[in-house]
């Protein structure tokens, strides 16, 4: 049985159906986390779910415009109130917002919780994208216990409604301890990164962890197209040395405890030689 994408690429990366889950999406700025969230929500809207978008870095108008540019027209969903933007942005520009769900002081986590609960009230199944934890922590003073409670309450309530949620974080803005701590709060972690080893920058996605479902763990390339994120069918392996896409059978070698894939034995040999001459700095 083929399952539909809950988030972009989920049908390829997860075996079977995705159970109701709270997911942490980790990735550097510019990698495509926000469009990933928008597509996740649009998939839900198209499936008849009510979708909540907690936005800290864009106004509702900008969000709708940007979604439309990828073919995710939310006009009718906004009219029937199935697309609800929890606006944590407009306070920065004076407070005027096209959304019914406005947070005037996102630094006040209790107030934010109340607005989210209000947006969830009376619903049967929802999905939520929280974009982003990084945006929120930049405007609020918090201690980790209180913040953890805040996140756990929201994720529990969404799961209680058989819903899925994605919470976004940019790791470069936080210390590694905070990221490790966040990983514990959620049911699973999705990771995005950019690979600059080739001629062009490639975007990669992987399911790092997920409770209650079998999943692939390798990095899978994706592209941001005019129609949103396209997770590629095949896994493109690139040679660790010459960076070319490996067409045939990869040549695997373990160097310094790490296993790498190479285009050929020659490339593996060259890598070993350079590593021997330049030492650890050669990666």
């Amino acid at each position: 049985m083929k399952y539909p994408d809950v988030f972009p690429g989920s049908a390829r990366l997860i075996e079977g159906a995705l159970p109701p889950s709270s997911l942490l999406l980790i990735g550097p700025s510019g990698v495509g986390k926000t469009i990933f969230c928008k597509q996740f929500l649009y998939n839900g809207l198209a499936d008849g779910e009510t979708c909540l978008y907690v936005a800290t870095s864009e106004s509702p108008t900008a969000i709708e415009k940007s979604m439309k540019s990828f073919g995710f027209d939310t006009t009718s969903f906004k009219e029937n109130d199935s697309f609800r933007i929890i606006d944590c942005y407009s306070w920065k520009v004076g407070g005027a917002s096209s959304s019914k769900y406005v947070v005037t002081n996102p630094g006040d986590l209790a107030a934010l919780s109340m607005v989210i609960e209000k947006a969830m009230r009376g619903l049967n199944k929802i999905r939520l994208a929280f974009d982003s934890i990084t945006g929120l922590t930049s405007v609020c003073d918090y201690n980790s216990t209180y913040f953890s409670k805040f996140l756990q309450v929201i994720t529990a309530k969404i799961k209680d409604l058989n819903g899925n949620s994605i919470f976004v974080v940019a790791p470069e803005a936080h210390d590694p301890q905070f990221i490790s701590y966040l990983r514990q709060v959620f049911d699973g972690t999705l990771e995005m990164k950019e690979d600059e080893s080739g001629e062009e920058i490639r975007r990669l996605l992987r399911v790092f962890s997920l409770k209650g479902a079998s999943h692939k763990t390798h990095w899978t390339p994706f592209e941001i197209t005019d129609h949103g994120i396209v997770v590629k069918n095949e896994v493109e392996l690139r040679c660790m040395m010459c960076s070319r896409i490996i067409d045939g059978e990869p040549h695997f070698e373990t160097v310094g405890g790490n296993t790498y894939s190479f285009d050929s034995a020659e490339c593996a040999g060259t890598y070993r030689k350079l590593k021997a001459l330049y030492g650890e700095s050669f990666e």
């Binding site: 080893s197 040395m241 960076s243 490339c267 060259t270 350079l274 700095s281 050669f282």
Partner: peptide, 17 residues
Amino acid sequence: ELKWQLAAMRRLLSAKN
């Protein structure tokens, strides 16, 4: 800069192949 040198080395090896 190591990053540049690595990228250049990769191009040399790709060209060699």
